[in-house]
Computed example of a mutant assay.
Amino acid sequence: MTLKTIYIARHGYRSNWLPTPPAHPAPPTGVNSDVPLAAHGVDQAKELAHYLISIDNQPQMIVSSPLYRCLQTSEPAADLLELPIYIDRGLSEWYKPDRDIIPEPATYDILNNFFAGKLKREWPNSVVPSLKGETEEDIFQRCKTFWPIFVQELEERFPEVETVLLVTHAATKIALGMTLLKFDNVRESLDEDGTVIRSGSCSLDKYEILEDDLGEDENGEETVLPFDQRQWKLTMNGNTEFLSAGEEMHWDFKSGFEAGSDDDIKARRKKQLEQQGVETNGDKKDGIDDKDEYEHVYVSLDVHNRNYRERHTVPNQTTLQHSGLETDKPLIKIADNVYEGTWKKSLGTELAFANETTNSKSKEGEQDAANTERVYRVTDSIDLNPIQPM
């Protein structure tokens, strides 16, 4: 038999994508940057698993990066499909050479403490990434080297397997796809329209071998061209239709940062603030000045209180942070507590009374600050459920 279908998934939503510490749990393995998934990422992994079990061409084998978040993403699918998880360092994260620390993944024995009974030891690493870091050209070459070694090992040891699921990281997912499709680098477009491989959290790609590469010998046995001569087509690009929140945290090499790194997250948030016209580092976005008008939008936040006999209030001085208000499940941090939100329409009538300062000109031509009170009707609310620390 021949490997005919390859699924490649990116891990789910990372815990360090949540608002600032102390919301970020420490790496369970003790390895630098080996962060776990956020609760939202665990939910995404479950949604991916249910999608995979609902389709006809299901994976017969799961191979994962050794990093914790990828194993967490693999676990629900492995449970539903009743498959073990194999580990291959060739699927590891991309770390740039100028990084302060180039982490080395945890060993099988350490990982087995967290995923007991789920992992299979008997799989060699197809490629081991350099512990000095990798350039874009290096990760492209790593993935190009990975494929023939991996496929030969799989077809020799598991000749019955025709469909495999690889769980990896954004940069590696892209580089694997670009080398499989025989492009020359990770930044090329797939077509004249500028299409790129989509790499949102928990997104899924599907590659299928061209039928022209398959045949039969005189005895009716299936034949296939050597791997380096096989042609593949991308039939599913960054699919997230099975995720309740759709595509989130897409990344590609044009970002300039490592995918999901602190620098990447800071750049995303800065860009989001600039798009909203908010000052960053003391600078204002071009074209925005003090005279520009802003739209004030009010929503109510409903925080669950398990003890209904006690009054539950949030002090006025409490710090509030938010992420993903444009999504179905925004993340809200109130003081040191992190919540996952669900939008809903407010019941009854809720009003917000806001004192706003306006500038009015006196008869003497001086600018006087005048306070006016406006009343806003609140039509939407966000139901907040606490995210348990991992």
Rank of each mutant, 00 (worst) to 15 (best):
K46D: 10
G90P: 02
D212V: 14
I387Y: 02
V297A: 11
F115D: 13
I102P: 08
N57D: 06
I62G: 04
T2C: 07
V31E: 02
D289G: 13
C143P: 07
G282D: 03
V303A: 06
P103K: 11
E137A: 13
I55W: 02
A77K: 12
V299S: 00
D56N: 06
T107K: 09
T318A: 10
N337G: 01
E122P: 08
G246V: 04
S199W: 01
Y308I: 10
K206R: 06
P28F: 07
D43I: 13
I265T: 02
P66S: 00
N125Q: 05
R14D: 11
S92M: 03
K333S: 06
H24A: 10
D262R: 05
I382F: 02
K363A: 12
E274D: 14
S255T: 06
A267H: 10
Q229T: 03
G133D: 09
Q229V: 01
R230P: 00
G177L: 01
V196N: 06
T342I: 04
A39H: 11
L91G: 03
I55D: 04
K144I: 03
E156V: 07
N113L: 15
A77L: 12
L320F: 12
R69D: 14
W251L: 01
V224K: 01
D368N: 14
S74G: 09
I149L: 15
A370D: 12
T349S: 12
N355W: 11
I101S: 11
L325S: 00
L176K: 02
D289C: 09
Y294I: 06
L154I: 14
P389I: 13
S74P: 06
L37A: 00
T349Y: 09
Q60I: 01
I149K: 15
L176P: 05
V378I: 15
E75A: 15
I149A: 12
D290N: 13
N32G: 11
R10D: 09
S64K: 01
P330K: 07
Y339P: 01
E258C: 03
Q229S: 11
I110F: 14
Q152I: 07
I174K: 00
N237K: 08
R268N: 09
S203K: 07
G246R: 07
C202T: 03
E293F: 01
P59Q: 05
K363V: 08
Q276T: 04
Y308W: 12
E47V: 09
R142L: 12
T280F: 13
D380E: 15
N371R: 08
E356C: 09
A23Q: 08
Y7C: 03
K96T: 14
G256M: 09
Y108D: 14
